[in-house]
């Protein structure tokens, strides 16, 4: 498991806002993650959450992603998960949410996702 420090960054890639998460998403940090995901919708463009660098996620982190999904639907903005790590995929599968989210391989695909 990564000992990486938790970090959240935001950037524009091909007309989409990408929130890039690094580290372990648990209760100590999930409120900030939630805020960052919801704030990303302010630009009015598709939103992606890059999870390639996330070594651990618990239900509080998953809940933040679910909120993003719901907000995207309410506002008519696309919302996708980008390249989730194996650890994240395992928890999504366990929560039976792996087919609820749109999952893409790269940030560039978020703006193009249909």
């Amino acid at each position: 498991m990564s000992a990486n420090a938790n970090a959240v960054t935001r950037q524009r890639v091909d007309g989409a806002t990408i929130v890039c998460l690094q580290g372990e998403v648990d209760l100590s940090w999930s409120q900030q993650v939630r805020r960052a995901v919801l704030d990303a919708f302010a630009d009015g463009v598709p939103v992606g959450v890059d999870l390639a660098g996330v070594g651990y996620i618990d239900s509080s982190g998953i809940a933040a992603l679910v909120e993003g999904l719901q907000l995207g639907r309410a506002r008519g903005q696309r919302f996708a998960l980008v390249a989730p790590s194996d650890a994240v995929r395992a928890v999504l599968e366990l929560a039976r949410l792996d087919r609820v989210f749109t999952i893409v391989d790269s940030a560039a695909a978020v703006g193009a996702a249909t």
Binding site: D58, S59, S60, I62, A63, V66, A95, L97
Partner: peptide, 16 residues
């Protein structure tokens, strides 16, 4: 799991 309440999801995971 459908409603995805935060606390409920954690217990659902434990259950699974």
């Amino acid at each position: 799991l459908g409603e995805c309440r935060c606390g409920g999801l954690g217990i659902a995971l434990i259950d699974r």
